[in-house]
Every structure is written in C-alpha cells, then in structure tokens.
Design a protein around this nucleic acid. Structure first.
Lengths: 238, 238
DNA sequence: AGTTATTTGTTCGTATGTATG
DNA sequence: CCATACATACGAACAAATAAC
C-alpha cells in the first residue's frame, strides 16, 4: 500500500505551478502562513516541502521582513548533480565523460554546415571574438572555449540537445577543475585556430569536411586528457 | 552571506555516505532518535533532511516496528525527472527528444562492430530471443525492443553513455506513453528483422555498413513518430 | 545608527497511525 | 488481539535574520 506523504504532495503541487510557468522566475511564493492555510497543513510539514523544492533549486528562501520563497528557473546544474551522483556511484571515469560529450558535437557540426544561417554565422564569429579577447586570461579563455562549443549545439536548434550539453558540461568542468589547477597547459593557440577553421568550413557549407575536422579536434583534446588523468573516477561530492 | 541551512548539511552528509558506498542498498539508516543525537539536531530538522533524500529516492522510509530509512541505489529515473523538468519548462518537443537519443546510438553501433566480443554477440542474440518471445504481447515487446537498444549502448562499455541512455529512455517512454496508448501501431515485425540484420552486420565486423543500417532504422522510426505527434511538447508532470 | 516589525530557522512536547511479533 | 517500536503529523514557542522606519 503506497501512501504518498503530505509533504511530497505539497512539493509536487508547487513544483507543477513553477514548471507550468504560472509563476515566473523572481516571483514570490505566498508566505508560510498563507501556504499552511491554503494546503491545510502544519508548519513542519510545509517546511519539508519547501526544503525539497529548495534542494532542487526551484526556489530560494530568504529570511527577514520582505523575505520568503522566490521562484528560480530550473537549472541544468541541478540535473548535473543528480546525473553526476549516478555516474560517481557507478565509478565512471573522466575519459568516459569526455567520450560522451565528444559524441554529441560532431553531428551538430554536420547539420550546422548543412543549413547555416547568417545570424548563426554571426553568433559563431562573436564566440571567436570572445576567445580572442580572453587569450591572456586562462580562466576566461577556458570559459570562452566552452561557450564556443555550447554555441555549436545551441545553433542546432534542438533544445533537448542543448539542455543535455549544458548538463554534461557542468559535470565535466566540475570534475575536471582539480586537474586544470595542476596541469593547466592547454594548447590554447592551436585550439583557437581550429575553431576559426571550423567556422570557415561551416560557412562554406562543407558538411563532411567540417564534421571530420571537428572529430580530429576533439580527438586531439582527448589525447591531451589521456596524458593526464582520463582514468580517474569522477569525484563530485564534498 | 550564504549560510547553508542545517537540514541541507545533514542531507549532504548522509548523501555522501550513500554515494561513497559506505552504506549499501538495503542497509538501514539509524533510527531518527540516533540520527538526532549524532548530528545534534531536533526532529523536524532531521525530517527535512530525510524528506530531501527520499525525494531523491536515495532512501525509502517505512513506518512500523522494523521500519526506518533504507538505502536505495541511485536511480536514473530521478535524474530523468529533473532533466525532464528542464526540458518541459523549455518547451522541448518529443521530436527533439527522439533526435537526441538517435544521435547516441549509431556511434555505439560503429564502435561495437569494430571490436565485438563473443560474449557481446551472445548478449545481442539473447536480446533478439527476448523480442521473439514477446512478439504477441505489445507491452512486453516494446520493453524488449527498448532493452535491445539499451544493450547496444551497454556493450559499448562507456558507463557515462549507458547511464545517460537509461535516463533519456525514462524521459522518452514516460512522455510517449499517452501516444502509445492511442496510436500504438508500431511496425513491430519490420523492427525485429532490422534488429536481426544489425546483429549480423556487427558480427561480420562491417562497421560502416552497421552504422548506416542503424541510421536508416532510426530514421524510419523518426518518420513514424512524425506521423503522430513529434511536435507535441513534453508533458511529464501530474 | 538604532529600533522594530515581519518572516523564516529551530526546538520541544504531544498525539496519532502503522506495521511487526 | 495486544503491546511495542517507529515514523507521521500537529501546535506552540523562542531564536535569528533582514529590511524598513
């Protein structure tokens, strides 16, 4: 006999309101007293529900006079946390993670070269410019390069792919950060040049060549990763 | 000043114990009274933490004399729930979901044909046999076909890919179930035959041909999906 | 700058329900 | 069927933080 607990029902009800968009990010939930009355429950029970939604980052709660719970948009970082839990539990390695991300991008590049738009090409040139600007700041450069990869997926127009790519990037960079701190000699200049070449191939509409070029690019990055710890297991907690 | 709440700290602490494998699935957590003492917190605060972990399906709580919280292995369905939340919030369609799953499998097939093992081939034949047995039961057949697809990814040996594939399947079949109930005329026989042909190509080591065959197979499934509602948005709640 | 009102964070005590033996 | 052990839920109270006055 599966009897759902009150707090879960309340959490699910509030979650539905948020996901359906009936409450937009920034909007405030009613204060505890109002919610208690609305659902006909006591304060501890309500707070259990509130805590669940807060752990999903769907709301953030502040104390004080104009405090209360405010709505956030669903965050890929949270999905990354749950997916990362499974991966860490199963002993997944950094190399496997990389392989996965790597298998997503080439098909995107192919399709992008097949049907590129002026605005899309513009976005890619912007991303390249951002890389160029950040060439002296290692942290900013890493971010700019990640943004370029993300743009490739975004321009594809598939929202599922983009959301997944964002999620995987969260896991990957969170897991990789300790390795970056130590052996942070990424072949930055060559990376940028290969990005530039990719945009040219896309602009020329050479789908096969663009995809192959991108596979080589990723394959090279994979070799660099293998040099340091591709076999190290994910460590996302603490 | 970001001050983490007590309940979140307790939840994180218990979560770490579970993910690290210090408590195995089936093991019982100490009773509430013991945990209250161990963390030096009151019952309501502890219950908030317990409720969070329960919402992540990392524990399940039963009442009664030998009740209490018992540990579960991390479940891809939970990652699916949250990733699904993001997708639904962003208005993702069933067609986009399908495209995503579809982009994962062909590379797996290619690699599988390149370096197949006797045990792997055995597993595929088992999956085919299960399909054959279930040919008269629509529900079982759908499950068997999904299992065949999962086996392709599993044999690839990449744990990240497998976990992701499981997660996406959860979302996809949960979202698709209403459509299956209505227009459930899947080209079952032809599907099975194409599965059989794929195994032959893998066994023969013809990587290019196997990948191409699988792309055609998926492309055909996509057309069937387009006939019904590929443009319908995901509806995972309720 | 200090006071105060509002709202959440935390605790205690108590009563109820449920499964086990 | 009863007693026990445990989680579920409620109510009332105090502590702490925040923003407005």
């Amino acid at each position: 006999m599966r009897v759902p607990k009150t707090a879960e029902l309340v959490a699910a009800s509030l979650r539905r309101v948020i996901i359906r968009g009936e409450l937009e990010p920034g909007d405030a939930l009613p204060p505890e007293s109002a919610l208690m009355e609305q659902f006909g429950i006591s304060r501890p029970t309500l707070r259990e529900a509130i805590r669940v939604l807060e752990s999903e980052a769907l709301i953030s709660v502040r104390r004080g006079v104009h405090g209360g719970a405010r709505v956030n948009a669903p965050d890929p970082m949270v999905a990354a946390r749950y997916l990362g839990l499974i991966l860490e539990y199963r002993g997944t390695t950094l190399g496997e993670m990389f392989q996965l991300v790597a298998s997503i991008e080439p098909p995107c590049v192919r399709q992008l070269a097949g049907r590129h738009t002026p605005s899309g090409i513009g976005r890619l040139h912007e991303a390249l410019a951002t890389e160029e600007e950040a060439k002296d700041d290692p942290a900013a450069l890493a971010e700019a390069k990640a943004a370029f990869h993300a743009t490739l997926v975004e321009l594809n127009g598939n929202r599922a792919m983009l959301a997944l790519h964002e999620t995987l990037q969260c896991i990957f960079y969170q897991a990789k950060s300790p390795h970056i701190a130590t052996g942070g000699k990424t072949g930055t200049r060559r990376d940028h040049e290969e990005h530039v070449k990719l945009v040219k191939l896309i602009q020329a509409g050479e789908a096969d060549e663009a995809e192959a070029h991108w596979r080589r690019h990723i394959s090279r990055m994979e070799k660099e990763l293998n040099a340091s710890g591709a076999n190290t297991r994910l460590e996302l907690l603490d």
